[in-house]
Amino acid sequence: MMDISGTNTSDAILTAKAGISAKRKAKIGALKGLMYFAAALTTVLLVGIIGYIFFRGVPHVTWNLLSTTPSLLTDNIGILPNILNTLYIIIIALVFALPIGVGTAVYLNEYATNKKLVRVIELATETLSGIPSIIYGLAGMLIFVQAMNMGTSILAGALTLAVMTLPIIIRTTQEALKTVPDSYREGALALGAGRWHMVRTVVLPSAMDGIVTGIILSIGRIVGESAALLYTAGMANEILTPLKSITPGNAGATLTVSLYMYAKERGQFDVAFAIAVILLIITFVINISAKLLGKKLKK
């Protein structure tokens, strides 16, 4: 009995297989093969790029590189000024982008009653997120450097990037605000809280994780940005004090811009690879922490 039923099933499989013509089978196989190939190619690309950059760069990431300023006299190359400039730009850009971005999201989600206005604001935000960084660089140069007389400076660069990161902060905050249950709002309002009181004490604290995710993603974008900074923040490699960084007229290259200069203009590839390693590590840490936060948010 067992045997018979066994042959029966295998027969069934055989006829089912026979139902698929050889041509059809080959087609399915080809599609599957292409899929594996595409997925493998993507992974290999990533591993190859990262592997090669670490291979070339890691030996040159030295304490001396990280802690000194470049000097033509002693032929020393250090990237401390570039690290500081990157930090300054992150902080200044966020000081502007964060309140405006969170404020916009709060307005869109909690206050706005005029649907047309909401649509226009959302259209504007989308447009901002689609503008390429070289255009931001040019607009920043025209508006902040020239029209507002800041000169090529950290401040002008940071303001340019503030505009550029605004859409990221608006979007992540808005997504977080949408996950706050309406019952929270109703509860607060029913207890007699005004709308602002409700936003401040109930809505914003519940949306905190989303806002932090927005900050992290913005930092990632700022750290990786270069085209928008070339003609706004400039290419200087001197150490600036925090006070100087917010005074107009003090130029400074970030890590990305200095990488470009060392690779393209000066042919110092070892330094360029070392900076690339640092950039990769920063962006990966940022990526992973944003993801962890996002997971927490979903719970």
Binding site: I49, I53, G224, A227, L259, Y260, F273, L279, T283
Partner: peptide, 9 residues
Amino acid sequence: AIPSVVYGL
């Protein structure tokens, strides 16, 4: 997430 200058390099 890789910055464009790194791709360039």
